[in-house]
Nucleic acid binder design. Structure first.
Lengths: 199, 199, 199, 199
DNA sequence: TATGAATGAGTGTTCATTCAT
DNA sequence: GATGAATGAACACTCATTCAT
């Protein structure tokens, strides 16, 4: 019975992974439902057993990957580390996802970054920024950060840096091997927290 | 004759502006030719008098907006100001363009900043991020910036911050009146150059 | 064993009743196999254990309901009552079936009464209208009805009246409680016969 | 310019007539959009210039034919003829439509008669019954008809007779040449009124 | 029996593009 | 120039039917 259930879940997952790969390769709009089914090795009709529409597949790709990430990001908030370390951890969580699930990151970055309507419909997209904002606000309160900085601006800056790094990797503009990722994480935190200029 | 020409240019411009607004709202792929024509208040057939195809409209948006912005950004490189000021000016150019032409900024960032195909097709014109990278590299050479930071990473961080601010404005997540824009510009440069942490 | 068999019949009957209700509501063509199964509370695959196809379900509805009604109608023909009473009885049989099995009556009238293809496929079984026609013809022969009326026209008028009453009930245009049904039966016969009978 | 407008209307009308012919021949559900376009001699895409969907074509077929009929039926009410003549005229209007527009009648009878949902959506379908009901009610008031008959039942009987005659013609169950139509009209009124009128 | 996953032919609909006026 | 009717390739989606479990 366990096998039965998992077999069912398998097909859904197969389709979802196939969709991620196809979307990552050709973009959502250029991907046909048949491509996804073919990639998954099933008839295209089956896709409609598990998803209501092609759009819903994209949403599922998002929800079922992003929500995991979100949970992990939000758990960072509960630690009593210094704010700087919390930011470091959040950056690490997001950036390392690139190493495990590059296609997912590619799809999220390319499709959601390019469609404001879509991004708005899936409001959760911005929740990492909210976490960052709270972390920074607490850092300011505790005297760990400068008082003259607006937490919402600062959070936007940090998140934007993370997002842009992923974009650079997706587009192949920056090296993205394991080593480079580790260095990027380090540099990102150093710059946003310590600044570029000599102090 | 001047009037005649300018009248002609008017319709073309109307279509171009309409395209920018529509692309900004829905993304290029999800925008239909009919949407653009409707937004411009003309029949959709007219679009094909001025442009060869929908794709060509996007290219025109690119050439006739991006290149202007880019020229201004590149002109910053030629000054002999300190790198910090150059970065400040580049940020100011982009962010203030928001006040005049928010949709143009949005489309440029969204479509051109994230599409490998487009970049290829349009001949990989220089991107602002490249300008930033050169400015930072020169800042390091001249001893104005820390030596232990990779210019390409640093440029990504700065550019990402700008991008995310614009995104926040587009989506209404942050205030974007003239005052807020001025403060954002200030904060952005302060953080990326000086860091969040107390020094 | 009886129970076993009846349990089997139960599911088949459930499907058949469900089909009748769904057909009555949406018409045969617009009804999906899934609708029937859902209405019956079983998996749609089960339908194919009991019926070869969706078409066959309709045929079964026909054979297992229409023929019963028809047999009762035809039995009226065998009595030696006056034609007027025979018509009265036929109307009563059909209209009162409404009280017990409104959907069956509806489907029978709707689909079988109006579909040339079906009539052909099902071997053009005798229709109530034919019974009425014979009854009226005999009434004329026996001098009970006016001689100047074509029995086929007259039968059409009587049958049409019945049909339209049922339609009005199905659509809720006329009251259809037990009392109203009794009165309708009375009025229908009075009007159609009032004209047919010698005055 | 008149020609231009009429040419445009022509294509819409061409499609509408084509739809009527195709629906009459194969039934709505079995008719493909391509069939209609082919019958009209245009590309199938054009259908969507003039109609929102295949369903809407059916509705248009109905509205743009039935409403003409309705107007004529309702105009009968305004005359000060005896109720019997008014009924005679209403029957004549409907029955003679068969001679001019047999396919339209066929479609209305077969599709709307078989789909309660559709019939309900297009409530106007029943307005002839309402007219008949008012005519009969007035006939009773003026002492032209029996007082012991419910006008709504009586109207249903009369309308049902008309409807069933058309159905019989559509299905070829009764002769429907010009002569037969004239006789049917005569007989129908004789029978239904013979019963309604004081004897 | 009973389920519902799986199939795939069939079809409605969209939309970039063309073209007569 | 300007319009919007006309085209048709391309695609998403449905649903009757089959079949492994």
């Amino acid at each position: 019975m366990v096998e039965k259930t998992s077999a069912v879940e398998d097909k859904r997952q197969q389709l979802l992974w196939a969709a991620v790969r196809v979307f990552a390769r050709k973009g959502f709009h250029a991907s046909r439902v048949g491509d996804i089914a073919e990639e998954a090795g099933v008839a295209h009709g089956l896709l409609y057993h598990y998803f209501k529409s092609k759009d819903q597949v994209l949403e599922a790709v998002f929800h079922e990957n992003w929500s995991v990430l979100l949970a992990r990001i939000e758990s960072v908030e509960e630690t009593d580390e210094p704010a700087a370390d919390q930011i470091r951890h959040i950056a690490a969580i997001v950036l390392r996802t690139w190493l495990h699930l590059p296609e997912v990151v590619r799809v999220v970055i390319q499709e959601f970054g390019r469609s404001p309507e879509l991004a708005e419909r899936l409001g959760e997209l911005t929740r990492p920024i909210d976490v960052l904002q709270r972390v920074i606000a607490r850092g300011i309160e505790r005297g760990e950060f400068r008082k003259d900085v607006d937490p919402s601006f600062a959070a936007t800056v940090v998140y934007g840096s993370i997002d842009e790094l992923l974009t650079a990797w997706v587009l192949g503009r920056l090296p993205s091997d394991e080593d480079a990722v580790a260095r990027a994480e380090q540099t990102l935190v150093e710059i946003t927290l310590g600044g570029l200029q000599k102090s």
